[in-house]
C-alpha cells in the first residue's frame, strides 16, 4: 500500500518481508489506521524517507510520521542502526519508534532500549495474538498517546 508521498504520513512501516507487512497492515486496517501508512523494505530506504534523501529527495519532509514500526532484521542497514540514526538526529528523535521483532534475544532488547526505543514487541506466531498486539499498538500510539509532533505544531501555531 503506497500512499502519495506528499500526503501526510502517520505511520512508517519498515519491514522487508512483504507478507509480514501485509499481515501488519491488515491488522491496522481493522482499526482504520492504515490509510496514512507508508511501507519501506529496508533500513536504507527508511532513512532516505525520513531525511528526504535519494529516491525521496523530493519529499516534503516538513512533517514526520507519528509512529515508526521497525523490524530488526533488515537488509542493507539493520534495524538497530536505523534506530540509532533516528534517535541521534534532533529532527527525528521525538518520533515514537516501536520495534516489531521476531527476536527475543536479551541483547537486542537491551540495546534497543539503550538506543531509546519507545517500545519493543516480540511478534507472536499466533495470528490472533499478533493481530491484537498490532492493533493495540496502533491505537495506543496513534490515538491515546499525546504526540510531541502535534504539540510542537500547536506551539508553532500559537507563536505564529
Amino acid at each position: 500500500m503506497q500512499n502519495n508521498l506528499n500526503n501526510q504520513i502517520d505511520i512508517l512501516l519498515v519491514e522487508d518481508n512483504p507478507y509480514e507487512a501485509r499481515l501488519t497492515i491488515s491488522s491496522l486496517q481493522d482499526q482504520n489506521l492504515a490509510n496514512k501508512l507508508f511501507h519501506v523494505d529496508d533500513g536504507a530506504e527508511a532513512l532516505d524517507f525520513l531525511f528526504a534523501k535519494g529516491q525521496y529527495e523530493d519529499r516534503e519532509n516538513e512533517s514526520n510520521p507519528k509512529l515508526i514500526l521497525l523490524d530488526l532484521n533488515l537488509p542493507k542497514i539493520g534495524g538497530l542502526d536505523v534506530l540509532r540514526e533516528i534517535k541521534a538526529n534532533d529532527k527525528t528523535k521525538s518520533i515514537p519508534v516501536v520495534i516489531l521483532s521476531s527476536s527475543k534475544l536479551d541483547a537486542d532488547v537491551v540495546t534497543s532500549y539503550m538506543l531509546g526505543v519507545n517500545s519493543y514487541v516480540v511478534k507472536p506466531v499466533d495470528f490472533d495474538v499478533f493481530s491484537k498486539a498490532i492493533s493495540d499498538l496502533g491505537s495506543y500510539w496513534m490515538l491515546l498517546n499525546e504526540s510531541s509532533v502535534l504539540l510542537l505544531l500547536a506551539k508553532t501555531r500559537l507563536v505564529a
Partner: peptide
C-alpha cells in the same frame, strides 16, 4: 518464526 506467523496469519 516469521514464515509460521505468515502461514498462521493468512
Amino acid at each position: 518464526r516469521a514464515p509460521l506467523r505468515i502461514i498462521n496469519g493468512f
